[in-house]
Design a protein around this nucleic acid. Sequence first.
RNA 1: GGGCGAAUGGCGGAACUGGUAGACGCGUUGGACUCAAAAUCCAAUGGUAGCGAUACUGUGAGGGUUCGAUUCCCUCUUCGCCCACCA
Length: 800
Amino acid sequence: MTKKYDPKKVETKWQKIWETENAFAAKNSSKKPKFYYLIEFPYPSGAGLHVGHLRSYVALDAMARIKRMQGYNVLYPIGWDAFGLPAEQYAIKNHIHPAEAVKQNIVNFKKQIKTVGISFDWDREINTTDPKYYKWTQWQFLQFYKHNMAYKDKKEINWCPNCKIGLSNEESSGGVCERCGGKVEKRLKEQWMLRMRDYAEILLKGLDKTEFIDRVKNAQIEWIGKSEGATINFPIKGRDEKISVFTTRPDTIFGATFIVISPENEFITKNIDIINNKKEVWKYQEKASEKSDIERTDATREKTGVLLEGVVAINPVNNKELPIYISDYVLNDYGTGAIMAVPAHDSRDYEFAKKHGIEIIQVIEGGNIKQAAYEGDGKHINSDFLNGLDQANAIAKIVKYLSDNNLGEKTINYKLQDWVFSRQRFWGEPIPMIYCEKCGWVPVPDKDLPVKLPEIKSYAPTDDGESPLARITEWVNTVCPKCGGKAKRETDTMPNWAGSSWYWLRYMDPDDENTFASEKAMKYWNMVDYYNGGMEHAARHLLYARFWHNFLYNQKLVPFPEPFKKRVAHGMILGPDGLKMSKSKGNVINPDNVIEDVGADTLRCYEMFIGDYKEDAAWTDNGLYGCKRFLDKIWNLQNRLNNKKGYTKELETLINQTIEKVTNDINSMKYNTAVSSLMILTNAYDKEKTITKKDYRTLLHLLNPICPHITEEINEECKLGKTLYLSDWPQYDNNVIEQADKKIAVQVNGKMRALIIVPSSFSENEVVSKAKEAVNKYLLGKKIKRVIYIEGRLVNIVVD
RNA sequence: GGGCGAAUGGCGGAACUGGUAGACGCGUUGGACUCAAAAUCCAAUGGUAGCGAUACUGUGAGGGUUCGAUUCCCUCUUCGCCCACCA
């Protein structure tokens, strides 16, 4: 009789072995082919590891373990993305330095991950809050600055009065603060910006070099938001002044009946002296600034606006006078912040025109303009030299006309904005800049990096919105590196996204003190082959990371332009109630408890079996226990071993099929069916009185990537062969699969009527005649019109 | 409003490239073991009719293509995600 299965004992034993032997360390040079798996490194929160984290860690762990057994030099690293608000807020509340809180959380996370037996290369562990790491984040920021890619700009930013923090467009989408959920206001503030917009085209084109899943690619394309059109200049009557508008439909210019500019458009301030209804305009501007983005962008809202009295624009193609309105349906940060309104062919302009009683001129045939704007294609009318042309030809002609006459030009626009890179917070990388009254902004010299965060007592932001660093005069006051005079440090810190915008590079060479990663290491590891993360990061993080990397490439600081070859996304693990797990709902599953209860291998197995990896799936304890029974069954097979060599004849085909299926399924992230096929194989073994050592070992080997502890233990205990993780991954014999008897479905008129089993050597005629025999009673008195034969699968007999 | 995706038993989910629908697991029911329970094992399990072999029906709804449709095409419904007054 075998020993009882004690998961804890088994798992601790093997985890210790892997640690002592440093079993999963990647080598920076090797004759083996390389493979780089990357999971999004976690934020080490106080709540501890989540079963959702583990779903992706285990998934890539299984892939990584197979790849190693297939002879690859695999890099599968982990680290900590530890800057950010939660640690800071925890620190404010508990009067503990965020670094201390982070340190404690990391200890806990690490302990938790280790009990799951993920084959991370712990030698390469990194931490974004470690000065040795953020030295290079700062250094890279200075590269942006030195190449004129970082600039300071006083601009309207999204301001969260609650968090007292400036937010990027992305972080305040919907007019709501991403962190606290509060309403976002507009506020002017000097901010460091990165010229991400300059990289819009590169980021778009770069997607061709990747194999991201379509969902992710679309998210990227959507976010970059490229559109082609024209900029057209509308002169102001009686003034040496003009309004530039951006339009994707320059062909409709003869239908323009008014101009709309955004309430923030600088045209207003510049020309305020000639505006007759200043007060009304100011009032509208004030109201607009109070509105949150969510109110402003609610498309169902009525289109309000104010006419600028005393100012008139001229349509450059026909000299028609056009009134100018300000309205908040025009966005200041897209295009030129001004549009030519063509109510006949744009539904928003149509709505506005109807409300304000403005003329509507149809310039394209089609639709019913009395009822709604017509946005489709058609023959141009009322359009002078464009008459008779369709949209594409009219656009080409008008664009040429505009540029020939110096009235405008072809323009490409992107929704993508420059990256607001400043945060008025303590717990982030200090931006390594010094302000000198004499010299202006001066970068901190490389030799003085990193600019470390000081030890301070209070981490709360100041009420005026300055970083808490601004209060530490001994830290702020410094000397100018250029002239040696008195100067002050920048007190803003970097956003949370900074540290995660290059971390995959540091993994390649985590201990290098002279560079962020040596060229040799980067050339060797090259692109991340497989990058797993959540859909919530498919737009922003991925865009920032690609931008950062492409920039470094353009400065010849990294040897390849795109960081990630393949990006895949996992589904969430939901609570047993089918809702997203959250403390407040009390539906959180703690992995520690699960491991205590059933062991890590069962947890791993269940997380892979729970459902389609790409989709969300709800946790059920019963499903977990099902996996426990599966492992118990495998453990108990130890009693069935015989002394025969090779595979059991009756099992040979199934074993070979299972090797093929498991290998392919795990490689294509179909973990649930991989587990399922191993369950089928186990059930087949269970039906046999005895099995051979080779039968058993192959099953264990195939399960090893998903359940590494129990499989190694049995393999060792029963002396089945070499330690599994050091052995070659099983190969299947295709001949065995092909020579197996074939199950053939027999249909009559497309209806399933019988199932026959035929030797693989049977010819078509033999199969068909056997099939006819099997369904004879359905054929009596019928005339066979046709027989369809699909080799190895089915015979369909078509009768009258 | 736009884009993408999804819809299969009581539940999670399988099904290659158009070829046995419901694998595998859970749950449920019946049985074995037990003084009893747990655990384990065996059997059944889409629906309807039938003692039964079996027949019919069945992948959100309706139509189409095909020898054959969960899979392809058209129309519609519902849900999810992402984007959203982007000119």
